[in-house]
Design a protein around this nucleic acid. Structure first.
Lengths: 213, 213
DNA sequence: CACAAGGCTTATGTATACAAGAACGACTGA
DNA sequence: TCAGTCGTTCTTGTATACATAAGCCTTGTG
């Protein structure tokens, strides 16, 4: 693996997990020494982070970790609703029904993964990830997929701000199941509506439990 | 201006204007010598191009200029309709009516710029650009604006494939005027509908006059 | 004659040295 | 005492030398 890739992944994780807080300046020599690489691959990593919007170049004073305000979260979800709503509708038109019906069945049983004695949250998140991947594959639109992918980085970062309790996860699983069901039924408008509903509830939860830094 | 910025702008223009055709391999030493800079800033330029999707790294054989197929154009416009439709709707909700009413008036008179003896096409394109900028400013959503901006690069490239005759430009000006009018009227659904109509006609024109390489 | 293996060539990936510019601080003048 | 300017210093931007890996050609063998 290339050194620049490792640096990119490390810095990206540090930012997403809020170990590097907004406003932190990422000086090149400092970070390159911390990661044990030279400045050249580090600069490439910083370029990629800046292109994604996780950092910004603060002209002359290095790159700094970007902040995410409450307004940003609103804007983020506004775009997310647009993109994922369209994605769900397209998946309902073009997707394989059996695939999404299978996902629907698994999502209905997801509360067992969440509420049990030894909650297998990892399996739950993996299941939701499989739904996202199935939608991505179904819409067969590389540009739309790319746009959603660049959004997800920021969304993961926002999600880390909220407290994902069992109650919310259980409700979210039901909402995801509704989306899968609408796609499996081949109903684009229903799929879009289910997605809109899910995202609004998700946004409400984030804003309600959001813990400022 | 930084050398990497100049290299990025030069390569981007070469690709958009189809001077660098799809499949062309951009070897680092070759391009750095052509542009009169060293490999370091050139690599940064190539990184940015690849992040935008104008080039792809062909594992071990350098970066190559990406192709745009007819399917790509369909996908591009599918996403464009989603984003710009939403943008027009938001602008109708949040924009300043006087601004868009002024743009509407100018767009109605745009045919004079197109059909005259000495067509001032530059002014026409500048006017359309002002409409885009006004929409961007009105929606006040940095993430949506960013998503549209990354799309526009590819769209300019596609536009260069089509023959922009005076008839099409005149029709397009009327469609743009309709969008501006709907936004000025504060009617989101009408603005979205006008945008959808314009994009469908634009896509039809591109596909009809498209000249393969 | 065909196929495979090995080295040679040429590409990218990385490190480091140098240049240029901007920010901060100290000093001087009013 | 405050403001402005000059100089120092630390930052990023660039060039180049080196390491490494992948591809292709050549050569040898079956």
């Amino acid at each position: 693996m290339r050194a620049s890739d490792r640096a990119y992944a490390a810095l990206r994780d540090d930012i997403i997990e809020w170990r590097l807080l907004p406003g932190t300046v990422l000086a090149e020599v400092e970070q390159s020494e911390r990661l044990g690489i030279s400045r050249t691959p580090l600069r490439e990593a910083l370029s990629r982070l800046t292109a994604e919007g996780l950092t910004t170049t603060a002209g002359g004073r290095g790159v700094v970790v970007t902040d995410i305000s409450l307004d940003d979260i609103d804007e983020l979800f506004e775009l997310r609703e647009t993109l994922e709503g369209k994605a769900a509708a397209l998946a309902a038109e073009r997707g394989d029904r059996a695939t999404f019906d299978q996902l629907r069945r698994e999502l209905i049983e997801a509360p067992e993964l969440i509420g049990g004695e030894d909650p297998a949250l990892h399996e739950y998140y993996e299941l939701v990830g499989r739904l996202d991947a199935a939608i991505d594959a179904a819409i067969s639109n590389a540009y739309l997929v790319q746009a959603m992918r660049s959004l997800r980085v920021h969304l993961v970062r926002v999600r880390r701000l909220a407290a994902d309790d069992a109650a919310r996860l259980t409700a979210a699983a039901a909402e995801h199941a509704a989306i899968a069901e609408a796609i499996a039924a081949g109903n684009p408008r229903l799929a879009e509506a289910a997605t809109t509903l899910h995202l609004h509830r998700s946004l409400s939860h984030v804003k309600a439990t959001h813990t400022p830094h």
